Computed example of a mutant assay.
Amino acid sequence: MSSSLLPQDKNSRRLLLAFLVTVVFMVAEVIGGLISGSLALLADAGHMLTDAAALLVALMAVRFAKRKPNSRHTFGYLRLTTMAAFVNAAALLVIVVLIVWEAIARFFNPQPVMGTTMLVIAIAGLFANILAFWLLHQGEEKANINVRAAALHVLGDLLGSIGAVAAALIIMYTGWTPIDPILSVLVSCLVLNNAWRLLRESFHELLEGTPEEIDIDKLRRDLSMSIAEVRNVHHVHVWQIGEQRLMTLHVQVVPPHDHDALLDRIQHHLREKCRIGHATIQMEYGRCETPDCEINEIPAASADHDHHGHSHAHHHH
Score class of each variant (00 low, 15 high):
T248P: 05
I35V: 12
M60W: 15
K218E: 14
A150E: 05
L155Q: 11
G242L: 03
Q252D: 15
T81G: 04
A18V: 00
E243D: 09
V62H: 00
G115E: 12
W176P: 02
Q267N: 14
L158A: 03
R63E: 11
I99V: 12
L155N: 08
L39R: 12
N296D: 13
R200T: 05
A54L: 06
S4P: 00
E272V: 06
G277H: 10
F19C: 01
R287S: 11
V23H: 02
R220N: 14
F25K: 09
D222E: 15
A149H: 02
I31W: 07
E294T: 07
G163Y: 05
S71A: 14
R72V: 02
V236H: 04
D157S: 06
L41D: 07
A124H: 03
A261D: 12
V87S: 15
V24R: 11
H137R: 08
V62D: 01
P7C: 04
L126R: 03
E141D: 07
S38Q: 09
V23C: 10
G125H: 05
L98R: 05
V187K: 10
V21K: 03
V147M: 05
L135Y: 09
A303R: 08
N144Q: 06
L249K: 11
S2P: 01
E289L: 15
L20Q: 02
E212Q: 06
P291W: 07
L223F: 12
L152A: 04
Q244T: 09
S71H: 14
S4K: 05
Q267S: 12
S188T: 10
F127T: 05
I99A: 10
V185M: 13
M114Y: 14
L169Y: 07
R265G: 04
W196M: 03
E243V: 08
A143R: 02
L80Q: 13
H307S: 08
L199R: 10
P181K: 03
G115C: 06
P211G: 09
M26I: 00
E29V: 06
H204M: 02
A300W: 15
Q8F: 13
L190Q: 05
A65G: 08
F64C: 10
S161F: 04
I281P: 08
Q138L: 08
A45F: 09
A151D: 11
L55Y: 01
A85G: 06
A58L: 04
V30I: 12
M60P: 01
R271D: 08
R14S: 04
R221T: 15
A61L: 08
N70V: 01
Q252H: 15
V27T: 05
L152W: 07
H310F: 11
N88H: 04
P112N: 11
A52V: 00
V57I: 15
K142C: 00
D9S: 07
D51K: 00
I298T: 15
M118H: 10
I171K: 05
L92M: 14
E284V: 01
S302H: 13
L126P: 02
H305V: 14
K10W: 00
N193M: 13
L219V: 09
L34F: 12
A168K: 04
